[in-house]
Design a binder for these strands. Structure first.
Lengths: 231, 231
DNA sequence: TCAGTGACTGACCGTCAGTCAGCAGGTGAT
DNA sequence: ATCACCTGCTGACTGACGGTCAGTCACTGA
């Protein structure tokens, strides 16, 4: 049936256009800064009219939140493959998750920034944020998995609550990524005669601290794989 | 001189009006939500015209950042009195700082929220944020003091860099406060059939984790002073 | 050939941050 | 008492931008 194949092609083109708009928005928001960029500019960059934007996204907020979905999906994909790698013990998995997470966030700082802004400025529980929350939940679930694995294989202590700690991890790396994204601004305001905090050391320091708090001091050491890790 | 006393009175009235505007803004931003509230509404609540707002504050962003100064000053004041209390060892001081910080942030969530939003949305290094940065720096300095005291009195380990850790603490409690401020939103989006993360446990969990990582395992225990403090 | 469909357009609207010419009322000098 | 002056304040106005919608056009399938 010709009707069907035409419909399929339309659907595909529609999806492609949506992606093209997201590409353009990422570029514009990244270059110009999120709040300053206008929908008109995004439309121009995407080579469509402003009205078209509103056929694909309900609002500017909706568009900017959608911008974070792709990088978050990238995080989740890499999370999944790490989680499925059985050769990693809980501690190593945890460390890798944190590093992966930070890496992708920093690589997409522009996209995340405005999503953060709209997260803060809205007060109603917008349903536009729902996709974001879903992804965050999956992300936290993966941290829980790593913690549970660590408790099971003895690489982590077993006297903490994995759910409580996973929320703590979430908060911590949220804050760390936030600071790192805004580091240039903070540094610009610092009086130059004082030691400037080293934001690049932030992640390693935090990883170190958390692992020190969580690592099992009397590790059973059954199937050890990596002989490194001292500090 | 009559002229002088009149000038003094004017200056005082000007300061009072500024405070009154901040009060009104805090009320309006708190009730209505930061981005939704208009300057017109703030003006009405402060019983002045919109134009007057711009005699006291350069912009809406400026006003909302100024809103956070007062609570931050409250934090700093309490920080100073904690720091000056010599009977507190480093570990206890650190714990108190964290708790105080969190308490004030939560009590003034409305004021902080929009400041966060403008932090994210602007890209230029606005000088309006400079007062904010100054306060944040003092805040972090106090954390550094606590860490140094802890290393000196043996309540904390001495094998970490106090500056690196202070940035880590800053990031962590920034993130934790951020999450707690937005907890209702996250919870609203969570599917109800899953265990909901307990945001009230977040602070205690983090304090616990950090102290576990930082506390001196072989504490010399020389001049212990307060037998209280359990949680 | 042509009616139907749906993606797309851009002029238009409402809102709101920010401006500015003018006003009131107090002040100090004459 | 009078007046020039200043200072704080006002609110109508402007420009910009997010969002809308009546209308256009290309394509489709009969």
């Amino acid at each position: 049936m010709g009707a069907t194949s035409a419909a399929i092609r339309r659907a595909r083109e529609k999806a492609e256009r949506r992606e093209a708009i997201l590409d353009a928005a990422a570029r514009v928001f990244g270059e110009r800064g999120a709040a300053v960029a206008t929908m008109e500019e995004v439309a121009e960059a995407a080579e469509v009219s402003k009205g078209t934007l509103y056929l694909y996204f309900q609002s500017k907020d909706d568009l900017s939140v959608a911008l974070t979905h792709r990088p978050l999906d990238a995080v989740l994909e890499r999370f999944a493959s790490l989680r499925d790698d059985d050769s990693l013990d809980g501690e190593t998995l945890l460390r890798r998750l944190i590093e992966t997470h930070a890496e992708v966030v920093m690589a997409n700082a522009g996209s995340f920034r405005f999503a953060m802004a709209s997260l803060w400025s809205q007060q109603p529980a917008e349903q536009s944020g729902s996709g974001y929350i879903d992804r965050i939940r999956t992300l936290r679930d993966t941290y829980v998995t790593a913690l549970e694995r660590g408790q099971a294989d003895g690489s982590l202590r077993d006297d903490f609550d994995v759910h409580e700690v996973s929320v703590a991890l979430w908060a911590t790396f949220f804050g760390a990524n936030a600071l790192r994204m805004n580091a240039p601004r903070f540094i610009a305001h610092m009086p130059q005669d004082r030691p400037i905090p080293d934001f690049d050391r932030l992640l390693p320091t935090l990883v170190e601290l958390f692992l020190r708090a969580l690592r099992n001091p009397e590790r059973r050491n059954p199937e050890r794989r990596n002989p490194e890790r001292q500090s």
